[in-house]
């Protein structure tokens, strides 16, 4: 089943043509890594899929609906099915961690148990800490915990592991793969860590010069002669 379908997507900021015709699809249950250099347009692309940004040309279908043509009410319905991590994320700074979790649980009208999320993401020592008093990495973990508060059909994560220590990275990836296996949810993410892509992603899209230069399974890319995704990236993308 197709969850996302993107055809010839174009987006500029003024004269800066960031996306110049992207074709992309995501099937239910896939984990897809979007890679590319800084400023390639990864966040822009993801934020369009999240229904956060508008686009200039092309089509973007999310859950079989063209995003551009949706009413406010329909958009709210779609947003309920998507969980996100933004780059960088900000929340109300003077709310405590547990209050943020409760607030977002209410936004998604979710039945997920907050105590379980707190335990899973090792947030117990920080439950009464104000968001702006957390370290950068813990802010990121709260943001991830909030993404898993609802049981979304799709997760869109913009550099979810940036700022996390190796243990938290592992916890996060275990969580993502478990979510993916258990619910069949789709995951689209960006990262600058090519090992993560190689280990966990079914498919890779390489954004270069505003187009999806390569969009293929991780396996086929490796089979075509690259030692690693890292090698693939270095040989495809120039400085």
């Amino acid at each position: 089943m197709e969850i996302v379908h993107v055809k010839q997507l174009k987006k500029s900021y003024g004269t800066n043509k960031v996306l110049r015709g992207i074709d992309f699809t995501a099937q239910a249950g896939e984990i897809i890594g979007v890679i590319g250099k800084n400023g390639a347009g990864k966040s822009t692309f993801l934020e369009i899929l999240m229904t956060l940004k508008t686009y200039d040309e092309g089509n973007v279908f999310v859950f079989d609906k063209e995003v551009r043509s949706l009413s406010t009410h329909q958009l709210e319905g779609i947003r309920k099915q998507i969980s996100v991590v933004l780059q960088p994320t900000q929340f109300y700074k003077s709310l405590k961690v547990v209050e943020l979790l409760k607030l977002f649980k209410a936004y998604y009208k979710s039945s997920v148990n907050i105590e379980k999320i707190i335990a899973d993401f090792k947030l117990e020592p920080y439950r009464k800490t104000y968001f702006n008093k957390l370290s950068g990495g813990w802010k990121q973990i709260v943001s991830l915990a909030i993404a898993f508060l609802s049981e979304p059909k799709m997760l869109i994560l913009d550099e979810p592991t940036t700022g996390l220590d190796p243990h938290m990275r592992n916890i996060l990836w275990a969580y993502i793969t478990k979510y993916n296996k258990r619910t069949g949810g789709t995951v689209i993410l960006t990262t600058h860590n090519m090992d993560e892509v190689e280990l966990y992603c079914d498919k890779v899209m390489l954004l270069n010069d505003g187009v999806g230069e390569t969009f293929d399974t991780t396996k086929r890319i490796l089979d075509s002669g690259y030692k690693s995704i890292h090698d693939f990236y270095l040989s495809k993308v120039s400085m």
Binding site: M50, T51, L52, T72, E76, G77, R79, K80, I82, V84, L86, T89, Q90, F91, F104, Y107, Y108, K109
Partner: peptide, 9 residues
């Protein structure tokens, strides 16, 4: 921005 992508009207 973060709130705007939640389903809350």
């Amino acid at each position: 921005k973060r709130i705007s992508i939640t389903p809350v009207p």
